[in-house]
Structures are given as C-alpha cells and as structure tokens.
C-alpha cells in the first residue's frame, strides 16, 4: 500500500533535540519496531509521522508524496496512543465508529465494521460501555480497534499492548501480526518489550537520545549490534576484550560452561527460568552472564567453572 520515508528528520524543543537527524525507510507492508529507553524520542517520531507535530527540519514522504507540513487528516494514518486517548464521553462502539463516521460510512457498513473490529480485540460484548468502565487492557484494545477499523494505509502503535497481561498480550501479538499481514498495512510499533519487538517485526530501529543507533532485522541487531549501546540495550551482553584493545560482545547462550579448558570463573548467582538456567559469574574481575539448558545437575553458587566460546560468536563493537 504505502511506504514511509523519513529524511534527515529533526525535532527541536529549544536547544533539546527530541529527534536528531533521523533517516528511516519503511517499505510498503513492512513491520518496523522502534526500541529505545524512555525519553529517547519514540513517541515524538510517531507524532511526526502522523502529522500531529511538525519536524524542525527534514522531510517526510508517505507513498512517495511529500507530506511534510500537511495536516493529519491528509495522511490516513491509524494511531494508537500510549495513553489510549479514548473519548470518555462516547461508548466503546462510538469510539470505534468515530473514524468511520468522519468518513461518512453508511450505517450498516459502519455497524458491521465496528463489530468485526471489536470481535477481533475480543470486546464485542462491551460495545455499550464507557471507557471509564473498562480495565486498562480493555481500553488499549478499544484504542487498537479504533486505529485499524478504517483500514488506514499506515498503522502507528505506541506501546499498544503495554497494559495487558502476558497471556492476552501474546494472543494479541499473534492477532496483530496476522491482521497486519492480511491488511498489508505498513506498521510502526513502539515497545519496551524486546521479545515483542523481536517476534513481531521485520526490522527494529534502536533510538537513543533522538538519534538512530541501528536499523536492522531483529536477529541481526541482536547478534551484530552496531555499537555498545545497542548491544547493552537489546538483551544481555557480555563484553570481552579483543586483540588490539578493542571489545567484543557475546550473548549468554553462546557461552558454554565446561569443567576445564577455558576461562576460570566463579558462580555468583543462578536464576532458573524454566527451560534454561541463567548464571551470573565473575572471571578476572569481569562480570559474565551465561545461559545453559536446564539438564543434569546445575552448578551451585560458589562453584568454579570454566567458560568457553567460539571466537566467531564474538562481535566486535566500537
């Protein structure tokens, strides 16, 4: 349907740069996730794409058309706000119907589409309620339904599943992915949840202080982080010295615990995570985290073990 291009986008608040020279190209139908710590500019980027905010410099193109400076109405973007932004004076039905009414959808089609959308987010029983009568998770689902009910070209989701419990979240993740695929809608998702990012997206973009750190496929960013920040931010990173004074990163599951023959280390902590067990260790004054399958007799705290890895699994970072 529609691709998105951000070209050298910056957003200044006085001297502060909420977005700093961001370049991003999202292909039509692609699913991109923005990851970054709080205050890194994720919401800012979404609001610039939606047209709720105008960039200080740079261009935004949607479907090849320069939309910089144009109003939200001209962009056909579905947006789920971090705070849901449901209309408190309208029922769930009317909230979801709002974008359709704006588009003058005929009554029967409107009803059908709203009910279908509510069904998808499992809220069809609550159509008559007010937002204040819903739980946080239910409100988020209404916001989600409202964002896609009018089949927008672009879906922008600002932590849309944050308030849901794990089970519902996983269900909805699958729904979201299927929906996105079926509608072929270009989607940008903001999330704090790395698993969500890794499992849903075609590519992830890592932001820090308004600047792009890396844009890559999830596995790529995980295994071959562009810099120390990305390595640290995505999952757990072990930093090891490389020849020539450089540093490399290796992921916990790539470190093996042997009886001997590697780097001698002491077990400081052992955390059971179901199928795997995570060890926190110290060796030569450095901290290590290693993940091992939960089989046989685990190591106890205080045990001395030997750490080994394959040189190719170490990725050099700046």
């Amino acid at each position: 349907m529609t691709d998105i291009r951000l070209e050298a986008i910056s957003k200044h608040y006085g001297a502060f740069k909420a977005a700093d020279n961001v370049d991003l190209a999202v292909a039509q139908g692609e699913f991109v996730t923005i990851l970054g710590p709080s205050g890194s500019g994720k919401t800012t980027l979404l609001s610039l794409i939606a047209g709720l905010n105008q960039p200080s410099t740079g261009r935004i193109l949607i479907g090849g058309r320069d939309v910089t400076g144009s109003s939200p109405q001209q962009r056909n973007v579905g947006l789920v706000f971090q705070s849901y932004a449901l209309f408190p004076h309208m029922s769930v039905f009317d909230n979801v119907a709002f974008p359709l009414r704006v588009r003058k959808t005929p009554a029967d089609a409107l009803r059908r589409k709203v009910m279908a959308a509510l069904e998808l987010v499992q809220l069809h029983g609550l159509a008559g309620r007010r937002p204040a009568q819903l739980s946080g998770g239910q409100q988020q689902r209404v916001a989600l339904a409202r964002a896609f009910v009018f089949e927008p070209d672009i879906l922008l989701l600002d932590e849309p599943l944050g308030a849901l419990d794990r089970k519902l979240r996983e269900e909805l993740q699958v729904e979201l992915k299927q929906l996105q695929r079926r509608l072929g809608v270009t989607t940008i998702l903001v999330t704090h949840d790395q698993e969500e990012a890794l499992s849903l997206s075609d590519r992830v973009m890592v932001l820090d202080r308004g600047q792009v750190q890396q844009i890559a496929a999830p596995q790529e960013a995980y295994l071959r982080p562009a810099n120390r920040f990305v390595a640290d931010f995505l999952g757990i990173a072990n930093f090891v010295p490389l020849p020539g004074g450089r540093e490399g990163v290796i992921r916990p599951e790539r470190i093996r615990l042997a009886a001997a023959g590697g780097l001698p280390a002491q077990v400081v902590e052992a955390v059971y995570l179901g199928q795997i067990i995570r060890y926190h260790l110290t060796a030569e004054g450095r901290n290590f985290v290693a993940a091992a399958p939960f089989v046989g007799q685990p190591h106890a705290i205080g045990d001395t073990v030997s750490l080994t890895w394959v040189e190719a699994d170490v990725w050099p970072v700046a």
């Binding site: 609001s47 939606a50 047209g51 709720l52 109003s71 939200p72 109405q73 962009r75 056909n76 973007v77 579905g78 947006l79 706000f81 705070s83 932004a85 209309f87 408190p88 709002f98 974008p99 704006v102 588009r103 409202r146 009018f150």
Partner: peptide
C-alpha cells in the same frame, strides 16, 4: 487531554 483532539485529527476529523 490534548491527545483526544490529536487522536480525532489522526482519524481524519
């Protein structure tokens, strides 16, 4: 909340 108006705008109102 300003975001309510923004939300409405984003839905094309």
């Amino acid at each position: 909340d300003d975001r309510l108006m923004q939300a409405a705008a984003s839905m094309g109102a």
